[in-house]
């Protein structure tokens, strides 16, 4: 299976084909509904984001808490379509990759294509399995959002499909 190294590069994204199964390796940020709302509100106010999203990949997930000795709890993808309203603003600021589950609107699909970015789907409901594909996790912004905080994860052989 094709290995995709993160952070992504536009030249690498061009080589990916829809439906292709890949294994993702490297750093991603996590963010879901509440963090997206805050990021986009910050951009609207022309303020600086707490973390740069340029060339980043965002994984839409809100993990369960980790037990002692665990890197992360269950951490499967959440429904991507709920982030559609916020995605164009993030793409304009350099976001290159997204990982989630489910279809996205036509408008977002064209916006992703236009900016040379890519959307991956992974396996919803496989939170325990996917937790074994995360080798490091650290909250780096919006700590007050709890499970919805922005984390830095390092993925290792994380299964996904190019959407």
């Amino acid at each position: 299976m094709k290995i995709v190294n993160l952070p992504l590069r536009k030249s690498e994204i061009k080589k990916l084909k829809p439906g292709q199964e890949v294994l993702l390796n490297g750093p991603v940020l996590t963010a879901r509904d509440a963090a997206h709302k805050r990021l986009v509100e910050t951009l609207k106010l022309k303020k600086k984001l707490p973390v740069s999203i340029k060339d980043e990949t965002i994984y839409y997930t809100g993990p369960t808490p980790a037990r002692a000795g665990q890197v992360i709890g269950s951490c499967g993808p959440t429904t991507s379509a709920r982030m559609d309203a916020f995605t164009p603003a993030l793409l304009k600021n350099g976001l290159l990759g997204m990982i989630g589950k489910g279809e996205r609107s036509e408008e977002i699909i064209s916006a992703i294509k236009r900016s040379g970015a890519v959307y991956f789907v992974t396996i919803g409901g496989a939170g325990a399995y996917l937790s074994e594909k995360v080798i490091s996790s650290k909250v780096i912004a919006y700590k007050d959002l709890g499970t919805e905080a922005i984390r830095r994860l390092i993925l290792k052989d994380f299964p996904a499909i190019v959407a």
Partner: peptide, 19 residues
């Protein structure tokens, strides 16, 4: 993977799904 996930969750006493 989905079947494997159920077995991992049971073995590690983890939530099957994060939701």
């Amino acid at each position: 993977i989905i079947i494997d996930n159920a077995l991992i969750a049971r073995k590690k006493k983890m939530a099957i799904c994060q939701d």
